[in-house]
């Protein structure tokens, strides 16, 4: 198994910083859903990771911890996360993107 970035929606949706989306070296990997926090009563949306593109460099973790100081991103084993976004489940809207969450490990099998 291998490590990928996992963003805590509750912490992320409480802010509108979006720094991790700008600092990820991989394109189309950390995406942003404007409506992610609405169900839980948060003001902002949240970033999420398309785990099949994440190379596990943890640059977003450093940016979130040290520049944004939100500590919302952790590196976790792919089989420990549960349901996550995959590129094939991502939909781009007019000003947002969203994903139907799926279990990447089960999906591969």
């Amino acid at each position: 198994m291998y490590l990928v970035a996992n963003i805590e929606t509750e912490i992320c949706a409480a802010t509108s910083c979006k720094l991790c989306t700008q600092y990820c070296p991989e394109a189309n990997t950390i995406l942003y859903d404007n409506e992610a926090g609405q169900d839980k009563g948060f003001k902002y949306g949240a970033a999420y990771v398309a785990v099949d593109r994440c190379k596990g460099c943890a640059q977003c973790v450093w940016v979130c911890d040290n520049m944004a100081k939100h500590n919302a991103i952790k590196m976790e084993m792919i089989d420990q996360i549960g349901d996550t976004a995959l590129t094939e489940n991502v939909t781009y809207g007019e000003k947002t993107s969203s994903a139907v969450l799926a279990n990447p490990v089960r999906g591969q099998g």
Binding site: A27, N28, A47, C57, K95
Partner: peptide, 19 residues
């Protein structure tokens, strides 16, 4: 740059090193 994550970027997956 402030909109990245909400549109499809023109750069695709590539074999450069992580990070």
């Amino acid at each position: 740059v402030s909109q990245v994550g909400t549109f499809k970027e023109i750069l695709e997956e590539h074999p450069m090193c992580a990070g």
